[in-house]
Every structure is written in structure tokens, then in C-alpha cells.
Amino acid sequence: MKLEHVVSIDAPRSRVWAGLMDLPAAARCVPGARDIAADGDVVRGTLEVRVGPVRLSLAGSVIVEQRDDIAGTARLRADAADQRIGGALRAFVDLAVTGDGPTQLRVSTDVAILGRIGELGQPLIARQADKVLAGFADCLRKTVAAT
């Protein structure tokens, strides 16, 4: 399942990039994230997602797989598992910043749904992922603007 988001952030490109690459801080920008902690290159934490009566508690990690500071691109890999329902999500997140003050941030996500979570139905999961990413971008915009 592929999701695309482009947001415009009214801040210099270098600040946006620095904000993104501070992974623990960026992770705290994800709506529903808690217990964020850096563990070497890996950032661990839990993402609480609620879809109506269904609650997921996705415990997992994020790591930067590739990073090119000059080009302003990076690939993150996120893995998270839920033990209430059973199942996991795995996402590759490609980040790219273009332009400069305002800076365009493109977030391309490829999410795979593993196990029983899939029984929630793909459209619903896509929508939740959409919401989480939109919230993340919004938070990032504010965080960067504040620095």
C-alpha cells in the first residue's frame, strides 16, 4: 500500500532537514506515539492508534536506512507489532525535501500489513496511515517553525 504526502513548511530547508533527521524528536511528532527512546541508531517506541472501537498498540522501531544530506533524501524503515489483535506493520518511508523557505517535504510511504491487522481492511488502514502522516507533517511544521 503506497501513500504520498507533500507538505509545504515555511522554514529554511536546512532546518526542516535537521528536524527530520533528529529521529527521536521527529518520532515524537507522530500522533499517538509514546515511550520514544533512542537506542543507538534505532528509535523505539509505541504507537497508539484507535479506529472506532478497535485499538491498536503498535510497539516497534524506526531506523534510517539511507541518508543523503546534500540531496535531502532519506529512507526510513519502521517495523511495529501489535499483540492485542496480532499482526504487524512494516513501512518504508522515503523523505525528500525540495525548495527552500518554503520547503516542500515529500513523504512517500510503502506500508505492508502483516497478519490479523489486515482483517480491519486495507481502505481503513490506508486512511489511518494517512491521518497519522498528516498529523506528523503538521507537527513537524510547527516544531521547525518554533526553532
Binding site: P53, R55, I85, R116
Partner: peptide
């Protein structure tokens, strides 16, 4: 806590164990 009226949606979600009140 979840509220049960007719149960046609809730019971399916419970049987799938997508909700576990």
C-alpha cells in the same frame, strides 16, 4: 466497556477479536 444494541456489527468485531472489551 462497549455497548451492545442489536450486536450485528459489534459481535462480528468481537468474534474477529478486533475488539476485546
Amino acid at each position: 466497556t462497549l455497548v451492545l444494541a442489536g450486536g450485528t456489527s459489534l459481535v462480528i468485531l468481537m468474534k474477529q477479536e478486533l475488539v476485546r472489551p
